[in-house]
Design a protein around this nucleic acid. Sequence first.
DNA 1: GTCGGATTTCGACGTTTGTCAAAGCCTCGA
DNA 2: TCGAGGCTTTGACAAACGTCGAAATCCGAC
Lengths: 100, 100
Amino acid sequence: MRALHHPDVSTISLPTMLNALADEVRLMVVRQLAEAGGVVCGQFDVPVSMSTLSHHLKVLREAGLLRVTPEGSFRRHELRLPEMETRFPGVLSSILKTTP
Amino acid sequence: MRALHHPDVSTISLPTMLNALADEVRLMVVRQLAEAGGVVCGQFDVPVSMSTLSHHLKVLREAGLLRVTPEGSFRRHELRLPEMETRFPGVLSSILKTTP
DNA sequence: GTCGGATTTCGACGTTTGTCAAAGCCTCGA
DNA sequence: TCGAGGCTTTGACAAACGTCGAAATCCGAC
């Protein structure tokens, strides 16, 4: 398995982060992660195909919002909330507080 | 002058708002508005042509972030911060607190 | 090693986006 | 009424995006 790249949050720009969150599907993913802690890829409840979900997860990961850890043949996804709060205080947390 | 449409903030979705803010130029505009209060179109300091700026202002207005009032031959732009705070508490204000 | 399940990558496709120059529209003042 | 200034609209274009199915990859179990 190729090592997954997780950018240092200090290198993430605000537009990059906001762009990652400015999509209905990705917002669903982030909300589900915030609620459930770690979520395995196949367990997200989203109305798109597996390959599209995979694409969205990549966008979120490259924007510094997700940490992905292989667990056997699964992949566990977690929100990098503490780090994002350090980089952009209040932004992600206030977004998560909005009602879907 | 055709009447300018300002959507009711209650009809704005979070992705729409975030998408409007997920652009370097539009973020510059919003920051300048937050600092200066009302800003006339021609006075924004952005690295794009007038027509492109006009396009970005339209995106921001349609996302409920701006109120535009004709003043003679000028157009005054204001951030709809209080309304957006009601709709999505903390989101816009925390974004404005980040350093450019 | 091989099979099967989980996930990603690859093409491909249509849509949306950001950009500019040119043309158009509005308002004010002469 | 005419002209000029301020802004928007139009038309064009390349680039980026969201989507899918099919093929490829990876991992654990048999």
